[in-house]
């Protein structure tokens, strides 16, 4: 069970949150210009690291706001929490 610190509400149990997958995936600036393979990369392919992973969570049963978390995918240790829209933090 994860204990996640919502930037607005503080630490809450994982069951209050909804998972949103990889963070910082920008919508292509000119989708029409992409090849099918490039579009497939955007649509279907996400990083799947064994280690720190920048991901989105929504406090679905609380303030309902989205934010970003850097979590280690083996230990589940949460290394950083930051509001949406901020750049990915550098994890040493």
């Amino acid at each position: 069970m994860l204990l996640i610190a919502c930037p607005w509400c503080g630490e809450r149990d994982e069951v209050e949150f909804h998972y949103g997958g990889q963070a910082h995936v920008a919508y292509p600036s000119d989708p029409e210009a992409l090849s099918d393979a490039e579009w497939a990369q955007y649509l279907f392919v996400r990083d799947n690291p064994k280690g720190p992973f920048a991901e989105r969570w929504s406090h679905a049963a609380g303030c309902r706001r989205w934010f970003n978390v850097v979590r280690h995918t083996v230990t589940h240790e949460i290394l950083a929490v930051h509001p949406a829209g901020r750049p990915k933090p550098v994890i040493a």
Partner: peptide
């Protein structure tokens, strides 16, 4: 479990 994980364990809920 909804989140990505390689730890061969998930959440109790």
């Amino acid at each position: 479990d909804s989140y990505n994980g390689y730890g061969q364990r998930g959440s109790f809920h």
